[in-house]
């Protein structure tokens, strides 16, 4: 049985839904899921329907990690000695922006909670607005490209590093292009006691502008260009990286409408060069190149 039932209202090719399938395949049924407001909540729970075959709670946008803290201590207070895992599955807006205070609190307090951010790099549910996780030069509805702009003028926030700075036992990144990698990391995370943070790259055909049959391909290109590196950190140290045979960033950028202006506008070449430098820096820092 699929624990996120078919018939949910996600767009065709929704990366977030793919991520949830991979996550729940790894956790199994003995789990309580907490989610913020966002695409995942909206596509899965229009009352009286629910796509969730596991217990699931949504409270608000910015309090997911605090609600999960409450669920976790409640089970402890009731003396439940079972193996039920408490996990959060939230988008990047609810995680790296508005929810980062409650996330930081949960990580710092050491709750036995696995927080998983599905990172589609903008506020998709409200119509593709820029978040702190939007990459450099991506056009969104609030960071559009224009006569004097190349889109989002800030680099993507390094949330895994922020999570790791809390001294938590496990931080990892992954991508829906690698379901086995997600499965392995989720299983590893939930087996570790204490707070864990995972960030899964989930391309969004609607928001990024690519055909819905290319979600996995786009996800793989992000990894292969070193723009979304895949790695694990255990107790603050990098313990594994996904090695890649690196491709130039153009291959990733050119298949998405959100970067189309870089190939049309004067000065776009220089911008692409800057993005390539970011990829180069990622590859160097993490030793990604085969």
């Amino acid at each position: 049985m699929k624990l996120l039932a078919p018939g949910h209202r996600g767009c065709a090719g929704c990366g977030a839904a793919i991520a949830v399938h991979s996550i729940l395949s790894a956790t199994g049924k003995d789990v309580i899921v907490v989610s913020p407001t966002g695409c995942l909540e909206v596509i899965s729970t229009p009352y009286p329907e629910s796509a969730w075959e596991v217990p699931w709670i949504h409270s608000l946008f910015e309090n997911t990690a605090a609600v999960a803290s409450g669920v976790e201590v409640a089970r402890r207070a009731l003396g439940r000695k079972d193996e039920t895992k408490v996990i959060c599955i939230g988008g990047d807006g609810g995680t790296v922006d508005i929810g980062i205070g409650s996330l930081s609190g949960m990580l710092e307090r050491g709750h036995d909670v696995t927080y998983i951010c599905y990172d589609n790099e903008a506020y998709m549910n409200t119509g593709i607005q820029r978040s702190g996780s939007t990459p450099y030069d991506a056009a969104t509805t609030t960071s559009p490209a224009g006569k004097i702009s190349f889109g989002n003028d800030r680099p993507k926030k390094n949330t895994p590093a922020i999570a790791a700075a809390h001294g938590i036992p496990y931080v990892a990144t992954s991508s829906i292009a690698y379901p086995a990698d997600i499965g392995k990391k989720v299983k590893k995370a939930i087996a570790i006691k204490g707070p864990k943070y995972l960030q899964i790259h989930t391309p969004c055909p609607t928001g990024w502008g690519f055909d819905s049959n290319r979600t996995i391909e786009v996800g793989r290109l992000a990894v292969e260009t070193a723009l979304f590196p895949i790695y694990e950190m255990e107790n603050g140290k990098i313990t594994s990286v996904k090695k890649i045979k690196r491709k130039p960033v153009e291959e990733y950028l050119k298949v998405q409408r959100r970067f189309a202006h870089l190939f049309k506008k004067e000065g776009g070449d220089a911008e692409i060069k800057k993005i390539q430098e970011t990829a180069d820096a990622n590859a160097k820092q993490l030793g990604l190149d085969m």
Partner: peptide, 10 residues
């Protein structure tokens, strides 16, 4: 929010 989660958990 902790109270919300804990209350929902019984």
């Amino acid at each position: 929010s902790v109270c919300i989660g804990a209350s929902a958990a019984g």
